[in-house]
Computed example of a mutant assay.
Amino acid sequence: MQLAIIVELGSVTKAARKLNVTQPTLSRTVKIIEDRAGGAVLRRGRYGVTATEIGERLATEGRAILRSTEQAQVAVQEWRNGLVGELRVGVGPMLAATVMGDFFVETVKAPPFYSLKLHCEVAARLVKRLKDDELDVAIIPYELDRQDDGLFREKILRERLSIFVGADDPLAWKTNVSPQDLSEYHWISVGAISGLFDMTRETLDWLGLTTVTPSIEISGDVTMTFRLLEKTNSCSMLPFRLAGAFQERFRVAPVGLNVELPSRNIGLWTKLASRDRPDVVDFIERLNAYLTKAVAQATVPR
Rank of each mutant, 00 (worst) to 15 (best):
V259P: 01
Y185G: 03
R251G: 12
R277K: 09
L58M: 11
Q77H: 09
F283C: 01
L157M: 13
R201D: 13
I193D: 05
V41K: 14
T223G: 03
M1R: 09
L135S: 07
R158T: 00
A289F: 03
A16K: 00
D136A: 00
S234V: 15
V222N: 06
E70N: 06
Y185A: 03
D282T: 06
V49T: 15
I32T: 01
Q71S: 14
A138W: 13
Q180L: 13
F152L: 10
T223D: 08
T203V: 15
L228D: 11
A124T: 11
E143V: 14
T50D: 15
N20H: 11
L9G: 03
E260Y: 02
L58K: 04
P239I: 08
G101K: 08
L272T: 15
D148C: 03
A296N: 06
F113T: 05
L204S: 05
V84Q: 12
G166T: 08
D148H: 07
A75I: 15
S236N: 01
D205A: 15
W173R: 09
R302D: 01
G244K: 03
E70H: 11
Q247H: 04
Q23N: 02
D145T: 15
C120H: 11
I139S: 05
G39N: 05
P179T: 15
A15P: 12
T98F: 06
